[in-house]
Computed example of a mutant assay.
Amino acid sequence: MLDRVQQSEKSKKAVLYRMVMPGHTCPYGLKAKYLLQSVGYEVEDVHLNTREETDAFKKQYGVATTPQVFIGGNRIGGHDDLRRFLGKKVVDPKATTYRPVVVLFSLTALMAMAASYAISGDAFTLRAAEWFIAFSMVVLAMLKLQNVESFATMFLNYDLLAKRWVPYSYVYPYAEGLAGVLMVAGTLTWLSVPVALFIGTVGAASVFKAVYIDRRELKCACVGGASNVPLGFISLTENLMMIAMAVWMAAAELGFIGGHAM
């Protein structure tokens, strides 16, 4: 193995050792190979085909994991080490990010416009705006319900009602999903409106108190209990959207405004 490393050229040649077994192919090995090739390296792809061979490799080089990359006779390390060596960003799994909510709202907006276009031939309609909020509620509920225990644990950090009545932390995502589905269909407004208005109002008050009064730095449970989205404006927006949708539908149902499309 050492001979192969010493023979590698310093220019654009790399030696990659990765696990390729009948029951397991290391995904980070595949990513490392692709990354090397994408920046112009010629890759000598050495497969570790058995557990014994892998363990022997780790012992020989004093490493704990595979894959391992060698360039110019020097060990670079695993996939993350390779990214650093190439000057590329390494994602911190614990870092705060707004990416999940940006992706979610972008896709639900596109879904709403697509549905509106399919129905009326126009993507920019009142119904598209209504569907955007309703679709967002359904998708947000789905993300919470992927692991309701994890969501409930994070939710209990700041929700005012859940702190007083723990079962509410489990009820919330189901209520949000139900209200969203009914709003998509434009039916049973006598149920969807009060549900959305109630959970939206309690949620908005809870977020406002935790973030803007108590000045607490918390993670938001809005996209599930495993998210690194900070509690703040985005969380408040989710609840304000539900309140606005509930008020809009109630006003339309009572005839105070016209043009309600649902």
Rank of each mutant, 00 (worst) to 15 (best):
K89P: 06
Y98C: 00
V181F: 04
P93S: 09
W131R: 07
F256E: 00
T189P: 05
D45G: 04
I234T: 02
T108H: 12
S206R: 00
K163R: 12
T153S: 15
S206M: 07
K219F: 01
S8E: 14
A175W: 11
G186T: 08
A112V: 13
E176G: 05
A152I: 15
E44G: 04
F105P: 02
Y172S: 00
L145F: 05
Q7T: 13
E176R: 05
H24W: 14
W165P: 13
G40A: 07
G78P: 04
A152D: 15
E9W: 09
S206P: 05
K219S: 00
L82P: 01
I133W: 11
I119R: 11
K33S: 02
K209G: 00
A221H: 00
F256Q: 04
L2T: 15
T153K: 15
G40Y: 02
A162N: 01
S38I: 04
A141N: 13
P22K: 09
K94W: 04
F85L: 07
I76Y: 03
A204N: 03
I76R: 02
G200W: 03
Q146Y: 11
K144L: 12
A252L: 07
E42V: 13
T189F: 12
V139K: 08
K33Y: 04
M142I: 15
A112C: 13
L240P: 04
E52N: 09
D55I: 05
I76H: 02
D55W: 06
L178F: 07
G203C: 02
I71M: 05
V247E: 04
R18W: 10
V181A: 11
G78S: 11
H260R: 11
C26H: 03
P167M: 09
D45P: 04
W131T: 08
M183N: 14
M137E: 15
V103M: 02
T153C: 08
M1I: 07
T66Q: 13
V207T: 10
I213E: 11
T187M: 14
L188M: 13
L140E: 14
G258Y: 08
D214I: 08
T50H: 01
K209M: 00
V139R: 10
A95C: 00
P167N: 06
F256Y: 15
Y61W: 14
V207F: 03
H24R: 07
I119Q: 12
L107D: 06
V171Q: 09
T54I: 11
T54G: 13
R215I: 04
E217A: 09
Y172R: 01
I71D: 02
K144T: 14
T54R: 09
F198D: 03
Y117E: 10
A185P: 04
C222Y: 03
G121T: 08
G224E: 05
H47I: 07
D122Q: 10
H260V: 12
A115S: 13
R75W: 05
G259I: 10
E149L: 06
Y41S: 10
S150D: 14
A162I: 05
G259W: 03
R51P: 06
G40E: 12
A204R: 03
Y158F: 15
Q68I: 14
A251H: 06
A185D: 03
V184I: 15
N157G: 09
V247G: 02
W131G: 10
L236T: 06
M19R: 08
